[in-house]
Design a protein around this nucleic acid. Sequence first.
DNA 1: TCACGGGTGTCAGCGGTATGTCAGTTATCA
DNA 2: TGATAACTGACATACCGCTGACACCCGTGA
Lengths: 214, 214
Amino acid sequence: MQRTERLFALAEYLRGRRTGVTAETLAERFGVTVRTIYRDLDTLRAASMPVAAERGRGGGYALDRSYSLPPVNFTAREAALLVALGRFAIDMRLLPFTGTLESALDKVRAALSTSAQRELLDRLKELSFLGVPSLPSKASVRAAIERAWFEQQPLRITYVDGNFLETTREVRIVSVVMDRHETRLDALDVRSGERRHYRVDRIVQAEVTRAFGT
Amino acid sequence: MQRTERLFALAEYLRGRRTGVTAETLAERFGVTVRTIYRDLDTLRAASMPVAAERGRGGGYALDRSYSLPPVNFTAREAALLVALGRFAIDMRLLPFTGTLESALDKVRAALSTSAQRELLDRLKELSFLGVPSLPSKASVRAAIERAWFEQQPLRITYVDGNFLETTREVRIVSVVMDRHETRLDALDVRSGERRHYRVDRIVQAEVTRAFGT
DNA sequence: TCACGGGTGTCAGCGGTATGTCAGTTATCA
DNA sequence: TGATAACTGACATACCGCTGACACCCGTGA
């Protein structure tokens, strides 16, 4: 497909540049009109590619440097399989990090948009996963854990133990353990140094301390 | 016969190409009109050959396997999560389609490893999944199932039932059911029309019949 | 000889996708 | 303020898969 090729080349081209490029330049470079370039850039943005635009004199397009993973191009099957697996993981609460996973799946799904591939997404419904879902936990708690884990920041949690005693403590996550029925934090208590497991479903509140990046 | 000869040549031609071909091009290539090409492609599809079509400008025909999508641009976190999830699915034998999944993960991992956030790959080891793996099955069987499922082709399986009786039959896969400990094929026996489940770990041999696509 | 059916060509039309054209609007900077 | 450049919407056009209808050719068998 001619267009897909150009999209990929466009992504590569933007990625390889440090300075901004005008749509005019891109149009000449790829042999299409400016309007098409705008549409292409819209498509890339729809696929969550971080293209930034500067208006006015000296402006142009550039990729946001902080998200500089090279683009991945899947085959339709690979993409479809990832969507199926991800959906399963979310349904079964396999991963506590549903937010990030969901956004990743959205991107993959967006790439699978043309007519021939919609049928493939339908066929995925024939892939059934069975199994016992893990215990539910609060979305806000999961989001905080996700951030703390990725950014390696301490976390303040309010925890209810087996005797229904509610305590608040600050911990550092050592690892996240996903078992069949529950997800646990293997964590170090900042104050006492004690290391133990905390069941995520028993954490009633969590917030990242030292909130740097929003 | 002239027609069947062309049919096989057509299949061969499509297989050898990576980019799409328009019916117009195929018509010139084989010295027939476009209408005949459409009829031929219908015939190939009826024989379960995975020919995919893209409409509109820049469209054309291609085989399913060589289908490429618009680029997907993950953040490092998303990529890391997908890799972790995929590795888990493979380890736990969650999906029988390890071939396709593995190649998808390779692409994600490759994108991640060229980025500044490569260390995320190491940190993934702190994400532990626990659980009882499902019963093992032969890689060759899984590969055949994967192909049969994606291409919707019949499958000839040699199956060992609960009484250690070995039978060979041809089935059409209706759906694939992934349960906790086992993966089953929900399939229709081509000859008898009987519908039942087959445990993948009990299939000792499997091959795709009507092998157009290899 | 004639009827029949499979394979093919011709044509018209439908629907979907990508691109171009054009006329604007908005934001930024010298 | 004027130049620059990102954006938007509307419309036209070319491209392309897909379907149905009909006519034609040709081999086969009654």
